[in-house]
Simulated assay, not measured.
Amino acid sequence: MGRSSCKMAIPIALVTVTTLAAMILTQASDPELTTDYYVNSTTDKTTVTSDYFTSEVFRGGITIPEGATVFTKRITSEPDSLPSLTGLGVSVAMIKYLPGGTNPHHTHPRGTEVLYVMEGKLTVGLVDTTNKLFTQVLSVGDVFVFPKGLVHYQINLGSKPVVAYISFSSSNPGTVSLPATLFGSGIPDKVHKVAFKVDGHVVDKLQEPFNM
């Protein structure tokens, strides 16, 4: 191959790599808006008022339903939440934990989570891709970051309720609850027995709460 051919191959390869990288980044984040804000095709934009950008979900704080120890209020871009968040790459939530209340291990596949403790003390945990566990006890005013897609949990080990405010780097970050996903989704027992190296009785016991 001559020098001119080599010179042509380098730019072509560079363009190819750059294009692939752009495609990956685009797929890994919220869609880019080409307007000031999102309005669905059935809405006349001239009729939009400030109510479209307002949510009253957090008014009055959080009341935990009877029988529960943890309860979450979310404001995302979902149609029944706050559609104006669509494409803005941000959403929020508020969680209240009674003593002993646990938000079990889960992930948010589409967004990083930033947690701010408003009341009480909260114990949190995070596991990275090398299987290293990071734990911390957070007090009022403390902030903790859970990177996108990594497994994490929160638990109130104190004697008083805890309230936390959370923001996400996605207008709809999603939540994958590991217990429910693993044992309530219909994954074959054989897969569980191989993965966890247990017999069928143990698998049945783990699946029982999710099959009611």
Rank of each mutant, 00 (worst) to 15 (best):
residue 79 P to S: 15
residue 25 L to P: 00
residue 95 I to C: 04
residue 59 R to E: 09
residue 17 V to A: 11
residue 97 Y to I: 02
residue 208 E to P: 00
residue 40 N to K: 10
residue 55 S to M: 11
residue 176 V to K: 02
residue 189 D to W: 00
residue 69 T to A: 13
residue 61 G to S: 14
residue 131 N to G: 04
residue 49 T to L: 04
residue 93 A to S: 15
residue 11 P to K: 12
residue 146 F to A: 08
residue 195 A to Y: 02
residue 97 Y to A: 03
residue 172 N to L: 09
residue 177 S to M: 11
residue 20 L to H: 02
residue 68 A to E: 15
residue 207 Q to I: 00
residue 111 G to V: 04
residue 26 T to K: 12
residue 66 E to A: 12
residue 12 I to M: 03
residue 74 R to L: 10
residue 180 A to G: 11
residue 151 V to I: 14
residue 107 T to D: 02
residue 128 D to E: 03
residue 178 L to R: 05
residue 195 A to L: 08
residue 39 V to K: 06
residue 89 G to M: 02
residue 28 A to E: 09
residue 209 P to M: 08
residue 107 T to S: 08
residue 207 Q to W: 00
residue 82 L to I: 10
residue 170 S to Q: 05
residue 63 T to E: 15
residue 1 M to H: 05
residue 40 N to Y: 09
residue 63 T to A: 10
residue 54 T to L: 07
residue 39 V to T: 14
residue 46 T to C: 06
residue 20 L to Q: 07
residue 98 L to N: 08
residue 16 T to F: 05
residue 147 P to F: 15
residue 158 G to C: 07
residue 109 P to A: 07
residue 150 L to C: 02
residue 17 V to L: 15
residue 134 F to S: 09
residue 97 Y to S: 03
residue 30 D to W: 04
residue 60 G to T: 15
residue 78 E to M: 14
residue 125 G to A: 03
residue 153 Y to V: 05
residue 78 E to H: 13
residue 180 A to H: 06
residue 167 S to L: 04
residue 70 V to T: 15
residue 165 Y to E: 01
residue 75 I to A: 10
residue 80 D to F: 14
residue 129 T to Y: 12
residue 157 L to C: 12
residue 71 F to Q: 07
residue 126 L to Q: 05
residue 113 E to C: 04
residue 56 E to V: 08
residue 191 V to N: 11
residue 64 I to A: 14
residue 196 F to H: 02
residue 133 L to T: 08
residue 124 V to W: 10
residue 22 A to N: 07
residue 210 F to A: 08
residue 200 G to D: 14
residue 75 I to P: 05
residue 55 S to N: 13
residue 63 T to Q: 15
residue 126 L to F: 14
residue 82 L to W: 06
residue 120 G to T: 09
residue 135 T to W: 01
residue 114 V to Q: 10
residue 209 P to Q: 11
residue 116 Y to T: 15
residue 32 E to W: 06
residue 155 I to Y: 10
residue 181 T to S: 12
residue 179 P to A: 11
residue 87 G to I: 10
residue 173 P to I: 07
residue 82 L to A: 11
residue 117 V to H: 05
residue 177 S to F: 13
residue 86 T to N: 09
residue 167 S to F: 03
residue 119 E to L: 01
residue 109 P to I: 06
residue 118 M to T: 08
residue 6 C to I: 06
residue 19 T to M: 13
residue 16 T to K: 03
residue 147 P to E: 11
residue 53 F to T: 12
residue 121 K to L: 04
residue 29 S to A: 10
residue 171 S to I: 14
residue 36 D to T: 11
residue 111 G to M: 00
residue 139 S to H: 04
residue 186 G to M: 01
residue 76 T to A: 12
residue 87 G to K: 12
residue 58 F to C: 06
residue 153 Y to T: 09
residue 45 K to V: 12
residue 175 T to Y: 03
residue 96 K to N: 03
residue 130 T to K: 06
residue 155 I to G: 01
residue 85 L to G: 01
residue 21 A to P: 06
